[in-house]
């Protein structure tokens, strides 16, 4: 028994099965990320400005990551085109770049995550708030943990300004950067302490959810493309047409993953 149209396109639809499958799958992915983007909008519209952190992400790094993904998007097409031109060596070359780009993206992203996990906000009982770093660069510290450790004070290196500060304040702070001084904060004066983790605010909640889900997609894509680059590429010698189709389908998925990032980057980093 043979299932028809696994390789050759069906004449009236012009598509082979896996291509229909991947487009349908991507439609569901659009709904998945669409729901999260809608949630982002709803949460943001409902949030007070001072509770919606802004400008805390590293834009240059985000830009680099965007470029990395765009490059991989090009190479994944080139890889497929090389197969179409029966040039297996070139395919290997381009696909290797794609996988490297994917890994680079993930590496940079984890670096960014780490940066956030060691960056804090303190809400003091007198109503003032500040962001900054804690001496010793601990990760995931919370008020409960500080108390459990029996500490009475923490050494805090504040940022020049809080994200909710007015434009002028931010401007002057940038013009006249003072030196970073450590201040001591008594634990009894702290109402809440949170790193920039999902629990910090709905902004970081949606930031981490969206980027982690996207990261998982990048990882999944990297595994599939890596497989087609490595052990899976044996198929080129037995069934070149089917192998080319596989590379195409993986490439479609990869484009989608890139496209999501193209939306994520401005929404999370810039707006």
């Amino acid at each position: 028994m043979e299932i028809p149209y696994t390789t050759k396109p069906r004449p009236d639809t012009g598509l082979y099965n896996a291509k229909v499958g991947i487009w349908l799958f991507l439609a569901s992915e659009v709904m998945l990320f669409g729901a999260l983007f809608s949630s982002y909008i709803l949460l943001r519209v409902g949030a007070f400005v001072e509770n919606w952190p802004h400008g805390l992400l590293n834009v240059p790094i985000g830009t680099v990551n965007t470029i990395v993904l765009i490059v991989s998007s090009i190479t994944v097409v080139m890889a497929w085109a090389s197969l179409k031109m029966k040039n297996f060596g070139k395919f290997k070359f381009y696909q290797a770049i794609t996988v490297l780009c994917a890994l680079m993206f993930l590496g940079i992203k984890s670096f960014e995550y780490r940066d956030k996990f060691t960056h804090y906000e303190v809400w003091k009982t007198d109503g003032t708030r500040m962001t900054g770093h804690i001496e010793g660069k601990p990760m995931f510290l919370t008020l409960a943990k500080v108390k459990a450790a029996g500490k009475e004070k923490i050494g805090f290196i504040p940022d020049p300004y809080h994200y909710s500060a007015s434009k002028e304040v931010k401007h002057t702070a940038k013009e006249h950067p003072g030196e970073h001084k450590t201040v001591e904060i008594a634990v009894s004066e702290i109402k809440r302490l949170s790193a920039f983790v999902p629990a910090h605010s709905t902004y970081f909640a949606i930031y981490f959810t969206l980027t982690a889900l996207h990261g998982l997609h990048v990882l999944g894509g990297a595994i599939v493309i890596g497989f087609l680059f490595g052990p899976g590429s044996k198929m080129w010698h037995s069934d070149p047409e089917r192998f080319t189709n596989r590379v195409e389908v993986a490439g479609l998925f990869w484009h989608f993953v890139d496209l999501v990032w193209i939306f994520l980057f401005p929404v999370l980093y810039l707006l």
Binding site: L24, M31, A35, P198, A199, T202, T209
Partner: peptide
């Protein structure tokens, strides 16, 4: 199923974050 379930999946992930990671979606 294809188009209606993913938003619930998204919602499920968010509620899981609320339950396990202390977010406030």
């Amino acid at each position: 199923l294809l188009l209606a379930f993913p938003p619930l999946e998204a919602a499920g992930v968010m509620q899981l974050m609320d339950n396990l990671f202390g977010t406030s979606f």
